[in-house]
Design a protein around this nucleic acid. Structure first.
Length: 1006
RNA sequence: GCCCGGAUGGCGGAAUUGGUAGACGCAGCAGACUCAAAAUCUGCCGUUCGCAAGGAUGUGCAGGUUCGAUUCCUGUUCCGGGCACCA
């Protein structure tokens, strides 16, 4: 009986499916464990071997916890809204719903093949109306909430309205930048439009005009984290800044709590650091400067108020509102020209030329409040309008950008840091003792910080201020394939729809092109966009207005859709209660399942998805809709599996040779093996290197190639499908079959011999060796390895264990199929502990010896420990050690083997279940290894009585001595000093000291 | 430029708290079984000197702390990732 993995895996996958083995109940009496994977976007390309890495890791953990007696929630679903499906629809006219459905089918087949323990009855899809109904519902909560800074939490907008009615907004200032202060009376006199406009400044989801990242090629705006180096993350298209009315999430209100929350979760330091950088908190001061000969004032933000005496100029962002007002007539023309220049530059150009110094003087001067100095006010690109106040005080001796600017425009530099400033570059030190700094002279900069701030606050010309780099998140996209907003407009005012109107489903569209004015495709569906007042029910505005009536006429639906991160911000909650059609999830279910215990996914979501879902969770918590405010307790980032590309090297035929009918190479391609290619590059000339191979075989006829400058120009390294290469050796038969154009190619092999068309390797002892390079795994590089192929060849259990054996889950590593044989051999060896090819069944029910129990319990200890801390590569190795030892000991005892199978079940569930049933005679469906209980470690079997101690002399290992573990220090010293080898190395000297660490080592110092 | 992470045999990697560096696997070499191949099994496998016993050396590089350092500290090089005019 041999290990027939194909039949075994098929059988058990079928049985588990039939018995609903992975179905999870909301059984609140059992301890819970929530193990979650980041759900995938179902792309058309399907899975490659990199995708399942994290899924396998989490699956092992989930199965392990289940064996440990936990009620484990381990669901899977699809983040099925998104750009690629829509881009594909634009090109082919196929509806995104159709392509998405097909892709999901393909994904599911590939996932099923690997044998995951997902509870598919809880599957969610973000594009399913029954799902996005609740995304829209949460959006309405965001729309109807505001952030109360004093209570430091989100509250219902109705409470804000009541405050306004009582006392206006002067004291009840929520998290908003508004400058418009109104009294209760004024509020009451506001029109409906004015009230809605005022409230909009407080809502957590709000519409506003703002600079957005507009991507013309994609026809939509993008969030900051979707723009990389001035181009779109997806597709690399140019992105420009544009003013548009957009929806935003007021995530800045949560900046501090998102920062604080990092202290309560178990994420990697790198991950926390990335989020901290993105939030970008800085402590500083906002200082108001008077403008000379003007009633106007200038606010700047600085993190270094201690350097105020070093201010040599001011710089405004070109977009700053003061620029218009303070520019003097003499400078007007030059400023206008500079503004024109700035406008002409794209975001990308600005980023590309970061170090270029540009700017212009406004002609105006600010006054330093502490010494009355007149400070010239400039404008320059390097100051950003969106950060701080959009204006800075420049201290060239302490800030390199200010220094560069001052040098470029010949502005004299005041040194306030003495020797710390060398006159050649700025020094941002905080250690210096201040000079040229009035009342701060002689003070350390770190102390001066608070002294200056106190003075500024006393004088009423500024205040302490915390700033964040993070901006509110753009929340609308001009696309079709996303969640429609539950919002309608009337006279330009946005009204929420009632919960009863949900879901607002996507209408059918004829095509996916933008609307008439650059809006999303939905704008073209006029009979969906325009709705009569009596056709819809509006949500509560809390404004005590007369309800909308038919007389109010036509409402227009919002034509934007929500961005990709909307659905993924809360999906982990829906899994808890996926079929609930009354609520997004039952409160009892969310209280029970609570935080995700283990969340596994890639680093690429560090700032996008992770921050947004953390924010949504905090909002839901504030509104008392769930009972916790961090979604993910522990995060594991699986590493990227890189592709291992293979190359063949084609000789480029010169144009002049192509027309020569006497020459064979005109018609045939010539490929050289990697060794030859490398030698040619090293030798340097084409004539000397190539012709011996080619001329000798009469490939060239009488033609001689001309010498080129670069030898490598004569070759094209061409990606070749990794699946037709064994290691680095090309499978020539498949190579010729794969592409018509290669069928007649000449191949120059590693030993310089030529393989002509029609010949195969049986006529030579040489090989064609391919070049190799590590790259991203992608279709275009022909380096994609499909899990299905490997599973077909070795089985899912081998595949699962091999992926884990590759290295730590967190590490990125190139894929290499070669080692999979070793893991497969291990499983075959395990099988042979139970069955022999000739003798059949060899497992028995004999009583185990202590030595055998020790092997088992060593494995229990190591594997349980490694599984618990996600060290799966070492766990797999421990299985191998155990099976090797049992084979050597010829142990075939059920008493040992059965517990081993349970240990193995999370890693290789199919073979474990099969053998578990072989050693037990269960009746059909009676038992499963999936619900067995995990073996208990019994330390007594591991107890040792003696230890082979390494003994060193002066720290150098000289020998090992077996000594009883209960030997005392003096016993040990006697034994060590009595040892022949040790005596030899002591060279007759007296020991100064003998270091003895019990159960570790002995070191004799002489 | 700034911030994180890493560097160990031919290769992937192990060494959990400072205590026998190289577990486990791949590849390679030698051998057994076989008509042969596959499968399986046995032995060797960092470098170097040596017939061997054994010795020297060795965790990117240069120092330091320690009886003892892959592990801690200082400096440095290279690689990977993130951020990038954020005042």
């Amino acid at each position: 009986m041999e290990y027939n993995f194909r039949a075994i895996e098929k059988k058990w996958q079928q049985r588990w499916k039939e018995s609903g083995a992975y179905k999870v109940e909301n059984d609140f009496t059992k301890p819970k464990c929530y193990v979650l994977d980041m759900f995938p976007y179902p792309s058309g390309a399907g899975l490659h071997v990199g995708h399942p890495l994290g899924y396998i890791a989490s699956d092992i953990f989930a199965r392990y916890k289940r064996l440990k007696g936990f009620n484990v929630l381990h669901p899977m679903g699809y983040d099925s809204f998104g750009l690629p499906a829509e881009q594909y629809a634009l090109e082919t006219g196929q509806h995104p719903a159709v392509t998405t459905e097909n892709n999901i089918k393909n994904f599911r087949q590939q996932l099923d093949n690997i044998g995951f323990s997902f509870d598919w009855s809880r599957e969610v899809r973000t594009s399913d109306p029954e799902y996005y109904r609740w995304t829209q519902w949460i959006f309405l909560r965001l729309f109807n909430s505001w952030y109360d800074v004093r209570q430091n939490k989100a509250r219902g907008i109705d409470e804000l309205v009541r405050t306004f009615e009582k006392e206006g907004n002067a004291s009840a200032n929520g998290y908003t930048q508004t400058k418009k202060i109104f009294t209760a009376g004024e509020w009451k006199s506001f029109s409906e439009a004015e009230k809605m406009e005022a409230l909009m400044e407080y809502r957590l989801a709000y519409a506003a005009y703002g600079e957005v990242n507009w991507c013309e090629a994609l026809g939509t705006v993008l969030a900051n984290d979707e723009v990389i180096n001035g181009v779109s993350e997806r597709g690399g298209y140019p992105v420009i800044k544009k003013k548009m009315r957009q929806w935003y999430l007021r995530i800045t209100a949560y900046a501090d709590r998102l920062l604080q929350g990092l202290g309560t979760v178990d994420f990697s330091d790198a991950m926390k650091e990335m989020q901290r950088n993105w939030i970008g908190k800085s402590q500083g001061a906002e200082i108001t400067f008077a403008i000379d000969n003007s009633p106007l004032t200038l606010d700047v933000y600085t993190t270094r108020p201690d350097t105020i005496f070093g201010v040599d100029f001011m710089v405004l962002a070109p977009e700053h509102e003061l620029v218009e007002k303070i520019t003097t007539p003499e400078q007007r023309a030059r400023i206008d020209e500079y503004l024109k220049y700035v406008k002409s530059r794209s975001e990308r150009e600005r980023l590309a030329e970061v170090k270029q110094v540009t700017g212009e003087f406004t002609g105006a001067y600010a006054i330093n409040p502490f010494n009355g100095r007149r400070i010239p006010v400039w404008i320059a690109e390097y100051v950003l309008a969106g950060y701080g106040t959009g204006a800075i005080m420049a201290v060239p001796c302490g800030d390199q950008r200010d220094y560069d600017f001052a040098t470029h425009f010949n502005i004299s530099i005041t040194n306030i840091i003495g020797d710390y400033y060398n006159g050649k570059e700025a020094n941002p030190t905080k250690e210096a003792t201040l000079i040229n700094s009035g009342f701060l002279n002689g003070m350390k900069m770190t102390d001066a910080f608070d002294v200056v701030l106190k003075k500024i606050e006393e004088a009423g010309i500024g205040k302490r201020k915390v700033n964040y780099k993070m901006r509110d998140a753009g929340f609308s996209r001009q696309r079709y394939w996303g969640e429609p907003f539950p919002v309608v407009y009337h006279n330009g005012i946005a009204y929420p729809l009632s919960d009863e109107e949900l879901p607002v489903t996507l209408p059918y569209v004829e095509h996916y092109k933008p609307g008439p004015e650059g809006e999303g495709p939905l704008a073209n569906v006029t009979d969906w966009v325009n709705v009569n007042a009596d056709e819809i029910e509006l949500g509560d505005t809390y404004l005590n207005l007369t309800p909308a009536s038919p007389a109010d006429g036509i409402y227009k639906r919002e034509t934007n859709t929500m961005p990709g991160y909307a659905g993924s911000s809360w999906y982990f909650l829906r899994y808890m209660d996926p079929h609930n059609n009354k609520e997004f999830a039952d409160r009892k279910a969310t209280d029970y399942w609570n935080q995700v215990d283990i969340y596994v996914g890639g680093t690429e979501h560090a700032v996008g998805h992770l921050l947004y879902s953390r924010m949504w969770t905090k909002v839901l918590f504030d509104l008392n809709l769930i009972g916790f405010d961090e979604p993910y307790k522990k995060l594991i980032n699986q590493g990227m599996i890189q592709g291992n590309s293979r190359f063949v090297y084609r000789l480029n035929i010169l144009g002049s040779l192509r027309n020569d009918p006497t020459n064979k190479i005109v018609r045939n391609n010539v490929f050289v093996s990697y060794g030859i290619y490398k030698r040619i590059l090293e030798e340097g000339t084409l004539i000397q290197s190539i012709t011996p191979y080619l001329v000798a075989n009469n490939l060239f006829g009488n033609i001689v190639l001309s010498i080129h400058d670069k030898i490598s120009d004569h070759f094209n390294g061409i990606h070749i499908d990794v699946n037709i290469v064994d290691g680095t050796e090309l499978n020539i038969g498949l190579f010729r079959k794969l592409k018509q154009e290669y069928a007649d190619a000449f191949l120059i092999l590693e030993d310089d011999s030529i393989l002509s068309p029609g010949q195969d390797l049986s006529e030579t002892s040489s090989k064609y060796i391919c070049g190799a390079e590590i790259e991203k795994m992608s279709k275009s590089k022909y380096n994609v390895v499909n899990p299905n192929d490997l599973i077909d060849k070795y089985g899912a259990d081998t595949f699962r264990m091999y992926e884990m054996f590759l290295g730590p889950v967190e590490a990125s590593k190139p894929w290499d199929t070669k080692g999979i044989e070793g893991v497969h051999r291990f499983l075959k060896k395990l099988w042979r502990l139970f069955f022999d090819e000739e003798k059949g069944k060899i497992w028995n029910t004999d009583t185990a010896t202590d030595a055998e129990l020790k092997i088992l319990h060593k494995a229990i200890k190591k594997i349980e420990d490694d599984t618990e801390r996600f060290s799966y590569n070492t766990a797999v190795s421990a299985f191998m050690v155990c099976v090797n030892e049992l084979s050597d000991a010829k142990c075939h005892k059920k008493e040992i083997l059965e517990p081993l199978l349970i240990l193995l079940a999370p890693y290789a569930p199919h073979i474990a279940e099969e053998l578990y049933h072989q050693v037990n005679s269960f009746s059909a469906g009676e038992a499963s290894i999936l619900t067995a209980s995990y073996p208990e470690l019994e330390e007594k079997y591991l107890a040792e009585t003696e230890k082979e101690y390494p003994v060193s002399v002066n720290g150098r290992l000289r020998t090992t001595i077996k000594i009883s573990l209960d030997a005392s220090q003096s016993d040990v010293e006697k034994i060590a000093l009595g040892n022949e080898v040790i005596q030899k190395w002591m060279e007759g000297k007296q020991p100064k000291k003998i270091i003895f660490v019990k159960n570790k080592m002995i070191n004799v110092v002489v």
